[in-house]
């Protein structure tokens, strides 16, 4: 089972040239995400603002998954569960605040929602991560998938919160000074969150912690041999990754104001994974590119045909077969060849 850790190039941090290249690229993306949505909103296309908001939220989830998938080399297929937990951390307290019961958490207060989202996803990540990380490779994939589906079925069976039919959030999380009911404010919150999370992850990936995590991906036995308890590092990364996705779920719940078990289904996890891999898992901004691609494809294809999953699935198969390393991988390969010729 040696082939289960992903065989990929060393991360960008180790080479100066690529760092600046991708750094410039991410800067451009962040610039575009800062300018385009407000322009779209004020020029009378609020629909586009919604798409951008969804994009940024998905990007946060993808970036979160990438910590464990790209940097940790651990293929978690259950991250939609954290998004769901985060979203239900908004819906459940709001539901009880409206209809009574469960006084402990019943509230519209945004800090209660946020705290609950982060706490629940952290606890779930800690418990399941502690079990999942005892295994590797295909076992790890299937177990994370199974735990994700466990949350799906648990929520389906909770009739109080709508079960299969889902739950409408009547009142968004209330924060002092800002109102998430304003779509532009909500977008600004999402965008700022993405920027902060990417910055923190950038610092994290170049820290001792991040380098140890990547070392464990490249050669776990060697890391153990030099005295590193890789299990602890991976578990912490797993928890951070889950918490980021839980946060994305908190935002998603406030954005859609409708939550249902459908958003936890394992195929949703597959979509986030698709973003990470298609964008390029070893680069910090890769998942954001993947999220952009996903949204663009979803809209383009679903405009052509209602059966858009067919071309989408074919594209996924083709990209796995012919585009290892994702879009950024392909671009940097071309760049790499040029560099070799010049050097």
């Amino acid at each position: 089972m040696a082939d289960t850790t992903m065989q990929q190039d060393p991360p960008p941090a180790t080479t100066r040239r690529r760092l600046s290249w991708t750094g410039l690229f991410s800067l451009l993306i962040f610039l575009a995400l800062a300018i385009l949505p407000p322009v779209a909103f004020y020029s009378g296309h609020p629909f586009w603002l919604d798409i951008f908001t969804r994009l940024v939220i998905l990007a946060i989830a993808a970036v979160g998954l990438n910590l464990i998938l790209g940097y940790g080399g651990l293929v978690s297929f259950g991250h939609a569960a954290y998004i769901g937990l985060g979203a239900y951390a908004v819906g459940v307290p709001a539901y009880h605040a409206t209809y009574g019961g469960f006084d402990l958490i019943a509230s519209y207060n945004g800090f209660v929602h946020l705290g609950l989202a982060l706490l629940v996803s952290a606890v779930f990540a800690l418990i399941t991560g502690a079990i999942c990380l005892r295994t590797r490779g295909v076992n790890f994939i299937m177990i994370t998938m199974a735990f994700g589906q466990m949350i799906f079925y648990a929520i389906v069976s909770l009739e109080t919160y709508g079960g299969d039919d889902g739950l409408t959030i009547d009142v968004r999380s209330e924060f002092p000074l800002i109102s998430l009911d304003n779509p532009l404010t909500l977008y600004t919150v999402c965008y700022t969150s993405l920027a902060i999370i990417v910055f923190l992850l950038y610092r994290l990936s170049n820290s001792r912690f991040g380098l140890t995590l990547q070392g464990a991906r490249s050669n776990e036995e060697r890391m153990r041999a030099i005295g590193v308890n890789t299990y602890h590092y991976q578990l912490i990364a797993f928890v951070i990754s889950g918490v980021i996705c839980g946060y994305a779920g908190f935002l998603l719940g406030n954005f859609t104001t409708f939550i249902s078990p459908e958003m936890i289904d394992w195929t949703r996890s597959g979509e986030i994974m698709f973003m990470v891999i298609l964008g390029g898992a070893t680069f910090l901004c890769g998942p954001i590119i993947g999220a952009i691609l996903f949204i663009v494809l979803e809209h383009l294809l679903s405009e052509i045909t209602v059966y858009w999953h067919l071309p989408f699935g074919l594209l996924l198969i083709f990209s796995v077969l012919f585009l290892p390393g994702g879009i950024i991988g392909a671009v940097s390969r071309i760049g790499g060849k040029k560099g070799q010729r010049n050097g």
Partner: peptide, 24 residues
């Protein structure tokens, strides 16, 4: 074409396959 690849590629490609087959 996937036997020589890692498990992640198996998972992604067969996930694509599910989308295709379900839609078909």
């Amino acid at each position: 074409h996937l036997y020589e690849r890692n498990h992640l590629d198996h998972v992604l490609a067969t996930f694509g396959l599910i989308l295709c087959l379900d839609t078909l």
